[in-house]
Simulated scan of single mutants.
Amino acid sequence: MLDLQLASLEIVVVIVPCQPGMEAPGQGRDVLFAPRPGPRTAGPAARSGLHYAKPYSTMKQLLLTMSLLSFLGLASADDFAEGQLWGYHTRKGEENSRVLINKVETSPRLGKIFHISVLNVKVKNPRIDGGLSTDLPHFPVSQETLKKSLTRLRGKSAPNPNYREGYETWKNAFDQGKAGIFTIDVADIVDAVEHTINQP
């Protein structure tokens, strides 16, 4: 299910294959369902709270929804690319933080690896003047991390020049089988870093 809420507008798209015994126009094809307002009537579709869209309008509605998703810049795995600046599910108080994708590479073993910087955070760091780190220059993360963390494309940016040092260190260790990548949420990565650097 794909839920998209825009002000008072709610679009819910569900694509399911027609099953034997279902009465639907264009039976045997994938059919688009949408919530039916008002009282429900008898029948499997009605009991589920869904109704069948007409086959002609199905593709139009799907294309409209995908266009809206593209317009709003919502995260899609196929869209992640170098130079993108994304909003993400942040920790409380860091709502203006952003994820910058500096570099994308592919590993035969792990698939796509995204080298990100996390900007404008508030990480307690007793090791520096001021006691706060605001930029975390390099994390190697999986596509799954981005899929479950990123929310909206905010713009584009040149790579963070400070990511290179961390990347080179990671790359040397990774090529020797001594380093991996993060698969947890970006906010959890930030939490882990803060916890680590504040250990006695």
Score class of each variant (00 low, 15 high):
1 M>R: 11
87 G>E: 06
17 P>F: 09
11 I>L: 15
197 I>T: 04
43 G>S: 07
13 V>D: 08
9 L>F: 09
60 K>R: 14
40 R>Q: 13
152 R>H: 07
44 P>N: 08
133 S>K: 02
50 L>W: 15
15 I>C: 12
168 E>K: 09
151 T>G: 00
165 E>T: 14
30 D>R: 13
115 H>G: 02
47 R>A: 13
86 W>H: 04
77 A>I: 12
139 F>R: 05
107 S>V: 06
75 A>L: 03
38 G>W: 07
150 L>D: 03
186 V>N: 03
156 K>D: 07
22 M>A: 14
151 T>P: 00
145 T>H: 02
83 G>V: 03
51 H>F: 12
153 L>M: 07
33 F>A: 11
25 P>K: 10
40 R>G: 05
150 L>R: 02
4 L>M: 12
198 N>W: 06
26 G>L: 08
195 H>W: 09
122 K>P: 00
91 R>N: 10
35 P>D: 07
54 K>D: 15
95 E>F: 00
111 G>N: 06
13 V>P: 00
22 M>F: 13
69 L>H: 12
180 G>W: 07
31 V>S: 11
98 R>S: 06
173 A>Y: 03
175 D>K: 13
18 C>G: 12
119 L>S: 02
134 T>S: 15
58 T>Y: 04
46 A>Y: 03
3 D>I: 15
126 P>I: 08
71 F>M: 13
150 L>T: 12
90 T>N: 04
186 V>Q: 01
100 L>M: 06
52 Y>S: 11
23 E>Y: 09
98 R>W: 00
161 P>Y: 07
127 R>D: 10
